[in-house]
């Protein structure tokens, strides 16, 4: 069981390393969305500090969505997904490895880049630790939800907009809790409730997510 997860994780990481440009695109997009928000708004420090956490979360959300679109496509087209589904080991295990790898190569770099975006937006120092903590708890949920949408739409020819329509409403709680936590911290308050909720959502996504994605993959293989 562990070897299936490990093999899937290793495979995905290897694939990611072989296509570094694919990895970089969502990250650049993440920074770009932040930049566009600043340009669209007034670049005054008060406004930016106030909307900053929300902008970072929306950018993270859109970048995750962009990164997820191709998550299953090449595996479906090459037939590798079919072989995983026809293995005697549960498909969920391969999916766990895949999601873990996907979070490591897209979610984690987003978290590491977010201080840069926070700097650009002039976020107060005090808001940074809670923002990072919230991103660590929230991005796995985004990974699972985006993967679910990607698995459901992978067999369709033009899946991009449909993926967004299907996934974005489901991500509302993560967006709300995540940005509120950082915003409250920036204003000197503490929003422990939001952090606890993010933790609960993370646990929920980690436990129910992989089997749900596996079901979605089986449906797309039909």
């Amino acid at each position: 069981m562990r070897s299936v997860i490990a093999a899937s994780l290793a495979r995905e990481c290897l694939l990611a390393v072989r296509q570094l440009s694919d990895l970089a695109t969502p990250l650049l997009f993440f920074i770009l969305v932040g930049l566009l928000f600043v340009l669209g708004l007034e670049p005054s420090p008060e406004i930016l500090a106030e909307v900053g956490p929300g902008v970072i979360w929306v950018a993270a959300l859109l970048a995750s969505l962009l990164g997820a679109e191709r998550l299953f496509r090449a595996d479906l087209e090459s037939g590798a997904l079919e072989l995983q589904a026809l293995g005697s080991e549960p498909l969920t295990l391969s999916i766990i490895g895949k999601l873990l790898a996907h979070w490591l190569v897209t979610g984690l770099p987003l978290i590491l880049l977010s201080p840069l975006l926070a700097l650009m937006l002039g976020l107060p120092q005090a808001a940074l630790p809670p923002l990072l903590a919230a991103l660590i708890l929230g991005t796995p949920v985004l990974t699972v939800l985006c993967a679910l949408g990607a698995a459901l739409t992978v067999s369709l020819r033009s899946s991009g907009t449909l993926l967004a329509l299907v996934v974005l409403p489901l991500t509302v709680p993560v967006l709300i809790f995540g940005s509120r936590v950082a915003m409250e911290a920036g204003q000197g308050g503490a929003a422990e409730g939001g952090m606890l909720w993010l933790g609960a959502l993370c646990a929920l996504a980690a436990s129910l997510g992989p089997p749900a994605v596996a079901v979605a993959v089986r449906i797309s293989l039909e």
Binding site: S3, A7, R11, S78, G79, E82, Q84, G87
Partner: peptide, 25 residues
């Protein structure tokens, strides 16, 4: 299957090594 199940970025050996644990033997 008709499709080979091989990812173009990986070598034949890496492809098979990633697939083998799924068979559980």
């Amino acid at each position: 299957g008709h499709r080979t199940g091989l990812r173009a970025e990986l070598s034949a050996r890496e492809n098979l090594a990633a697939w083998l644990p799924v068979t559980g033997v």
